[in-house]
């Protein structure tokens, strides 16, 4: 048996009633996935914050490298045409 004594760390993602996406809310320790989900419910939804929970062991998260932030994200800066407000819509046109 391994010498590990700490329960592993899990990242918690919660979808709120109004929310469309699961959002990262924090982390916690749990011995297994089932317990992590229950703990997430007990810790992060005490005020009816959520309707759906995802957990993933923190060691499985791969993050983008902050040193490459410029290379990763700056190119999107000048692609304003991806945003709906870029386009002018005549006032008479509703529901677009």
């Amino acid at each position: 048996m391994s010498q590990q004594k700490d329960w592993p760390l899990w990242e918690v993602f919660i979808r709120s009633k109004q929310g469309l996406d699961h959002k990262h809310v924090g982390s916690l320790h749990a011995a297994d996935a089932e317990m992590a989900i229950q703990n997430a419910r007990d810790v992060y939804t005490r005020r009816m914050e959520g309707v759906s929970i995802w957990v993933v062991e923190s060691k499985h998260i791969h993050a983008s490298n902050p040193d490459e932030a410029a290379a990763f994200f700056d190119p999107a800066n000048d692609k304003v045409y991806r945003h709906p407000t870029f386009y002018e819509v005549p006032a008479e046109i509703k529901n677009m």
Binding site: W7, L28, H29, A30, M35, Q38, N39, D42, V43, R46
Partner: peptide, 8 residues
């Protein structure tokens, strides 16, 4: 025994 279970 651990914070998470205290909450539970």
């Amino acid at each position: 025994p651990i914070l998470e279970q205290d909450l539970a």
